[in-house]
């Protein structure tokens, strides 16, 4: 066998192995990278301190989430132009009424962005809901929680940590069930 052929036979497997290793590495990158669709209820904030929520209600009253330490807080991200939010609202009203009778009751808070405060006030007047409704005109609270679409519901534990994130609509019973599990120290 000519020396040239012998040399190629020695080198070729190494070149093939190198190219194969590069392809495998690229496949690993592609397989482990996120698809970019933020539709999961998972959040990097789970178990971490909740982002700052320091703003005014649509009625102009100041609100600071930090002052709610010691209580369970349910944050609902809402808009009057969002049909699923409107469909969900009666469930939140039922949830709030049921919670009022509980010893370890959770406080419901709505956060509104990209909406007319007058429309929001009129909606709550017409459809009920006695809980604080926060205006987030610059979207600081929305970005802080990583909320891009409404509705979303988050549960904050009495230590001020994020306990659960629920994407899309909730029912009164479903939300109470998740909250109950969290209050018993179980996974949501």
């Amino acid at each position: 066998m000519p020396p040239e052929t012998l040399h190629r036979r020695r080198v070729a497997p190494w070149v093939a192995a190198g190219v194969g290793a590069l392809l495998v590495a690229l496949l690993v990158v592609l397989a482990t990278s996120s698809g970019g669709e933020a539709d999961s209820a998972r959040t990097p904030l789970l178990g971490k301190p909740a982002p700052v929520v320091q703003t005014d209600t649509v009625d102009g009253e100041p609100f600071d989430l930090a002052t709610r330490r010691g209580s369970w807080v349910v944050l609902n991200f809402f808009a009057t132009w969002c049909p699923p939010c409107l469909a969900e609202h009666p469930e939140l009203v039922r949830f709030a009424r049921a919670q009022a009778a509980q010893p370890d009751r959770a406080e419901l808070v709505t956060v509104v962005n990209n909406d007319d405060p007058a429309n929001v006030r009129a909606f709550f007047d017409d459809n009920g809901g006695e809980w604080p409704v926060l205006a987030d005109p610059g979207g600081r609270v929305y970005v802080g929680f990583g909320v891009a679409k409404v509705p979303e519901t988050w549960i904050i534990d009495p230590n001020g940590n994020v306990a659960a994130r629920i994407v899309s609509t909730v029912t009164a019973e479903g939300l109470a069930e998740v909250l109950g599990r969290l209050q018993r120290g179980e996974a949501p």
């Binding site: 690993v28 990158v29 990278s33 996120s34 970019g36 669709e37 904030l45 990583g146 891009a148």
Partner: peptide, 18 residues
């Protein structure tokens, strides 16, 4: 807040750095 998937340029550490 939103996950690494929102960044259009890959990170400079960990697996994305590859």
């Amino acid at each position: 807040r939103f996950g690494e998937g929102l960044l259009l340029t890959p990170g400079t550490s960990g697996v994305p750095a590859l």
